[in-house]
Structure formats: C-alpha cells, structure tokens
C-alpha cells in the first residue's frame, strides 16, 4: 500500500506542478502511515534526487513510445504500476498533462477522481478532498468512494517542500507499452518567459492600457519581478495580446502569490479566473472599478503615470539602474 505520485517532466526538468504533487503526496502518505513512491515515464537524469521531497522509490518505465505524451499509452503503463505496487492513492498535478492522463486512469481503474484539489484530504470520516468549483468562486468537498483514489492537484495551491535529504531508489519497471496513436509534429515553447500557470507573480493589463503599443511598461515590470504577463478577455479578443495570456472564466484560471491588475475593471468573469491569487493589487483610474472590492491593495490613478513610478521604485529596491 502506498501513495503513488506521477512525476511529470519535460526537457530534463521536473515540472513545478510535479514538485507540488510530490510535496502533497508525501505529506498525505505520512498522514496515512504509508510509503510515498513516484512513477516516472520516459528518461529523466538524476531522478533519485527527488528523494528529498520524501519519495522512497521511483518506478521508472523508459521506452521510445513514452518520450511524448499520449494519455492512452501513459494510462495503460501507470495502471500496471498501480496494480503491481498496490498503490491506493495516485496523485497528479492538474496541469495540462495531468488533465490528459488522470481522468483516463480513473475510468480504467474505476477509481474515484477529484480534479482541482486544493488541500490535503480530510480522512476523519471517509476521504474528502476540497476542490475549486464555479471557476474559483466556491469550493466543494468531494468524497472519493472507491478503494483506489486519484487526486489532481491544482497548480499553485500547495507549497513545494523538500522534506529530507534522502535519495530515492529508482527501479526500472517492466511494463507492456502499447503503440501510440499520437505523433508529435512540432513543439513551440515560449522561451525565456515564465509559464503563466506556474508563475508566482503575474502582471496583467486590460483595456485601460488603450492599445498593444503600451504593453512595454507591463513587460518591463514583469521582467523586473520575474513575473509572467497576462491580460483580460477584451484585450485578447481584439488581438492586442495572444490568446494564451487571457486569464478569466473562459481563459486560464491562475492562482499566483501576487496578481497585479493594471487598467482592468474587474468584471465577475475576470475575477473568477484570478481570485485564488494570494495577494491582489489593482491599479485603475476609476475609483468605482469593481476590482477594488476584490483587491488587497489598490491605487486609484492613471496607469501611465503610476506604473512608471512603480517600476522606478522596484528598480531602487532591486538595485537596478
């Protein structure tokens, strides 16, 4: 019996979501009094060092068919590891790969699945996991009613904690790997930018910025803070900024530690995508903007005057000329 954590990685790096899942899974295992183990598909250098997050064993299956994500193939392999190890809880990040695999595994194993978990389960009376619902406007406590359980942990909702200095034993697992029906033609990653879903700090702009030519100060502030840039829906709909930057109910839902909204009024659909942010700063010239009600800190003022001053102050703080 164990908690099994899916170690999601790309380009030789463990994804942040996977580190969160490892931290969550090892804390859950400690609470249940069972071992925390990892499952790793494909090649990852120096996987044993992930022992510092508390996993004792990592079951690795490496095969050419596992060098790109095909949820169908991955699911069949993970199911074999679950069966062989007798894992009772399987933890995924609810990131893009997790969304491709975890629901499939649930259907295959007929194992209860909660996606979008934001906290460790309450095991006092069954196995109840709190998840985000209504696009961040509420939470549901979901009871997982089968012996084997699957959890999809929302990105940025659980702190990454290295719990030890141990090295995990990496065990080569002999699995049957099916032929993939998916061929990757190309991959296009945005270089030198923090992925929005993983960012600790997000600087976001709205219609108040008047046009795409005014995004220079948003990008400058973001760069100074090591932040990702985002935008509201009208901004992406009018193609001032690319679709992938759109946060809100119908865009990406994010939960950074700091969300700085500049020239965004804060329509309810926008708030739905960002209100899990830990600290919200709103800069808007309209004192009646609804966003101020959802903010922790606010400045009423013209973005074109306030933001350059904020940039100067951040530069002073960081010692940048």
């Amino acid at each position: 019996m164990s908690v099994l954590i899916f170690i999601d990685h790309s380009d030789g790096q463990v994804k942040k979501g996977a580190l969160e899942a490892l931290s969550y899974g090892t804390q859950l295992a400690a609470r249940l009094g069972v071992a925390a183990e990892g499952v790793l598909l494909g090649a990852l250098p120096d996987a044993g060092q992930l022992g510092k997050y508390g996993v004792t064993k990592i079951h690795q299956v490496d095969n050419d068919a596992l060098h790109h994500l095909d949820g169908q193939v991955f699911t069949a392999v993970i199911a074999q590891v679950v069966e062989a190890t007798g894992a009772k809880v399987i933890v995924f990040s609810n990131n893009s790969d997790g969304k491709a695999i975890a629901p499939r595994l649930s259907a295959r194993l007929k194992a209860a699945f909660v996606s979008g978990a934001i906290a460790l389960p309450d095991t006092a009376n069954g196995f109840v996991v709190k998840k985000s619902v209504f696009s961040g406007k509420a939470f549901a406590n979901v009871s997982l009613n089968t012996e084997v359980k699957i959890i999809g942990l929302n990105p940025n909702s659980f702190a990454v904690t290295a719990s030890g200095s141990g090295t995990a034993e990496v065990i080569s697992f002999n699995a049957t790997v099916d032929a993939s029906k998916v061929k990757v033609l190309s991959t296009n990653k945005i270089k030198d930018e923090v992925p929005l879903g993983e960012a600790e700090i997000v600087v976001s702009g709205g219609r108040g910025l008047k046009g795409p030519e005014n995004w220079g100060m948003i990008e400058e502030l973001a760069k100074l803070l090591g932040a990702a840039t985002a935008c509201s829906r009208p901004v992406s709909d009018t193609h001032w900024r690319p679709h992938h930057e759109h946060v809100g109910q119908t865009g990406l839902a994010i939960a950074p530690n700091l969300y700085i909204a500049i020239g965004i009024s804060g329509a309810i659909q926008h708030l739905a995508g960002v209100n899990r942010s830990k600290t919200i700063v709103v800069i808007n010239k309209d004192p009646e903007a609804p966003f101020f009600k959802a903010a922790d800190y606010g400045i009423v003022g013209d973005a074109f005057e306030v933001v350059p001053k904020v940039i100067e102050e951040v530069k002073k703080l960081k010692g940048v000329a």
Binding site: D97, N188, K189
Partner: peptide, 12 residues
Amino acid sequence: EIEGGEETDEVE
C-alpha cells in the same frame, strides 16, 4: 496546450 507553449499532434 502544454506548460508554457503549444504542441501540434497528428492523431488517428
């Protein structure tokens, strides 16, 4: 969508 980008797949 993948983390930090986009992937193009050919699928049966």
